[in-house]
């Protein structure tokens, strides 16, 4: 049986940031998914969620759990990434100072998502939504 869940993520709402990832983690635990797989999904989802809060005009995270895999899709409403290749480089960040003061914006988010995933896709360009798909096989 497949399970689908969807979460709206608000722009710049730092007080709620992380709630979707936390919820996803709890759902996966209830489903009896192995702890190492849950951690990889939790970390990459949290990075994606923070990215939507920090950089986008708001967006959505969709979780799909099948017997074979867990898929997280993060889609925002723009404004898009100018140079995706550069954004994928460790240490590259456009995060503002207030975000850095919260301990984020080190330019590790996208590379970390890729590292946690068995499959990672990103599509984005300036003026368009960013769409990220993270798949971890069970």
């Amino acid at each position: 049986m497949n399970i689908k869940l969807s979460y709206d993520i608000a722009k710049s709402d730092f007080s709620k940031a992380g709630e979707a990832s936390s919820n996803i983690k709890k759902v996966l635990r209830q489903l009896g998914i192995p702890a190492d797989i849950i951690k990889r999904i939790a970390v990459s989802t949290y990075e994606a969620e923070m990215n939507i809060v920090i950089h986008s005009d708001g967006g959505r995270i969709d979780l799909l759990v099948t017997p074979e895999k867990i898929q997280v899709k993060a889609v925002d409403k723009g404004p898009g990434i100018k140079d995706v290749e550069l954004a994928m480089k460790e240490g590259f960040s456009t995060a503002p100072n207030e975000v850095r003061e919260m301990g984020f914006g080190a330019g590790m988010g996208l590379p970390n998502m890729k590292r946690c995933a068995d499959e990672f896709h990103i599509s984005s360009s300036l003026g368009n939504p960013t769409e990220i798909t993270i798949i971890v096989n069970i």
Binding site: G18, A42, Y46
Partner: peptide
């Protein structure tokens, strides 16, 4: 020394 809810969220994600 970083005291905010995101420290807790990070810990939660990382077990």
């Amino acid at each position: 020394g970083l005291v905010n809810p995101h420290t807790i969220r990070t810990a939660e994600m990382m077990d």
